[in-house]
Every structure is written in C-alpha cells, then in structure tokens.
Nucleic acid binder design. Structure first.
Ligand SMILES: [Mn+2]
Ligand SMILES: [Mn+2]
Ligand SMILES: [Zn+2]
Ligand SMILES: [Zn+2]
Lengths: 130, 130
DNA sequence: ATATCAGTTTAGAATGATTCTAAAGTGTTG
DNA sequence: CAACACTTTAGAATCATTCTAAACTGATAT
C-alpha cells in the first residue's frame, strides 16, 4: 500500500484514499478492461463506495498520466485498459467480451498516409460473433 | 427519382418523401460518412427539413437493410458509412477526419480465435495525428 | 503539531446523443 | 376511395458523462 502511494506520487497524483483504492484494484498485476460503471460495481463488492464523479475523475487522471489506455468500441461506454503496451483486441459487442491480443500483429498493405498527417496508432479490432 | 423509389421498394422500405430525400443524398454515387447531426445539417442546406427522429429512424432502417455500415470511432457519435464494401479507415479524432482505405489490407499474426467464437470482421483503424 | 492552501471528492444539476411515446399523417392495396 | 399498416414527428425520456460549487483533505511551511 505504500507502494501504491509511491506509485501515485511518482505520477504527480496525490495518494488520496479513493485513488489508493482504485489504483490498488486496477494495478494488481492482472490486465483489466473496465468502464466507470463496472469499476464502481467491483469496488462496491469490496465495500469501497466511491462516487461516480470521482471514478470518472480518477480514470481520466490515470489516463492522462499514461497509466491507462482508452478504448472506444461501443458508442455507449468508454473502456479503460490497464494494459498500456501496444496491443489489439478480440471484441464481442453482444457479450461485452474483450480479450487482449498481445502477439505481434502485422498490418500489411496500408496506403500512404494522407498529406501532412502522421500515424498515431494502428488499431486492430477483431469482432467476434456467436 | 423513380430509381430511388424502386431502390427503396426493393429493400422493403416504403418510398416516403423523407426516405427519398435521404437516400437521394446518401446514395448519389460518392462514398460518405455521416452522423445523424451532419446529415441533418446537409439536408437543411438543401432546404430539406426532416426531423431528427426520422433521420435516426431512417439511418437505422437503412443500416438494418445493409445499405449502410455503422462505425464506432468516438464515444460521442455514431458514423454511418455509405461504402458497404469491406474496408478500413484513416481517422483523426481531433479533426473528425475520416477516409476510406479500400486497398486490400492483410492482418498477419492473429492468434487463434477464442473457443466457440467466430470472427465476424477484422477492423483496422489508423489513427492520425497532426 | 497547526495553519494554510492547493488539490480532491462529492451530490446533484446539466449536457447531449440517442431512443421512446403516442398522436397525426401517408403510401399501398383492394 | 376506404381501410389499414407503416411513417413521421414533437416532445419527453434515457443514460453515460461532464460540470458546478461547496465541503474535505493531503502536503508544506512555520
Ligand atoms: Mn449514449
Ligand atoms: Mn455522450
Ligand atoms: Zn487490452
Ligand atoms: Zn468508410
């Protein structure tokens, strides 16, 4: 828990009670994909009631400090990803199913980048059915 | 315009005034990416005032009949794509910039599909900067 | 320690895209 | 032209997210 405090401090984030709880859950070593809502539910199960406003604030604070990635897979909710390595996803909209693809994927045959633009990221989403 | 009526009828859609106007705009031969809002604005420029509810209804009707694709690139708005071929996109969130990639892209190195799931579509989004 | 202050949390209101409701209008068919 | 199913629409509702402003708390200096 002091590790978490240090971790937060080293990212210019005050180690508040709420951030410590949230970071403790998110960065426990297992990769996670959460929404504000799912995170709120998980923390509630652990008897940590934190306001949704703070959950949103914290997810954004972590995101802005590079501790989380943001995924836009559905129009209705934003996912945050604790796996900050470059990677891709299997995704099932229907089942809200989301799995990392950490293997090196190669995308071949891209046309030239539009004038005066730079590629920021190539994102591959494998949509699943059934 | 009779073509449009036939086109709508052949898709089990009654050729109403509104659908004729919307289809006439969307399927004029040039590929388009629209949101409900942008479509409303474009039609208004052409002096065709159609309620937003109808625009949403129509976009979904067209989508359900396979006349449009749906793109989820941002959490705040849904894009509909008149290019129904399999293809990919350059996308700039900041500039709401969206360009088709019609060239054949190959995605190599995908891991095996999760058990009991089937790949529905492999989507490549090239995020642009600057 | 204690005061001080910037940074944080929070309830509740606001926002904005989208969907819903239910009433009025219209295309189709006989 | 009658009858009816399908459509359109204004306005309300929904819901994820953001905003506001007041209360709270971690950090820092004394
Ligand atoms: Mn929404
Ligand atoms: Mn929204
Ligand atoms: Zn991931
Ligand atoms: Zn396209």
């Amino acid at each position: 828990m002091n590790d978490i405090k240090q971790f937060l401090r080293s990212n210019a984030l005050r180690p508040t009670k709420q951030r410590i709880v949230i970071a403790g859950y998110l960065f426990d070593g297992t990769d996670k994909h959460v929404t504000a809502e799912s995170l709120s539910t998980e923390l509630a199960k652990r008897k940590h009631i934190i306001s949704l406003a703070t959950i949103y604030n914290t997810l954004h604070d972590f995101y802005e400090n590079g501790l989380l990635k943001k995924l836009t897979l559905s129009a209705d909710r934003v996912y945050f990803d604790t796996n900050t390595d470059d990677h891709h996803h299997f995704y099932s909209e229907k089942e809200q199913f989301l799995i990392d693809i950490n293997k090196n994927i190669k995308v071949n045959g891209l046309p030239k980048t539009p004038k005066n633009k730079k590629i920021n990221k190539v994102e591959v989403i494998v949509h699943l059915d059934k």
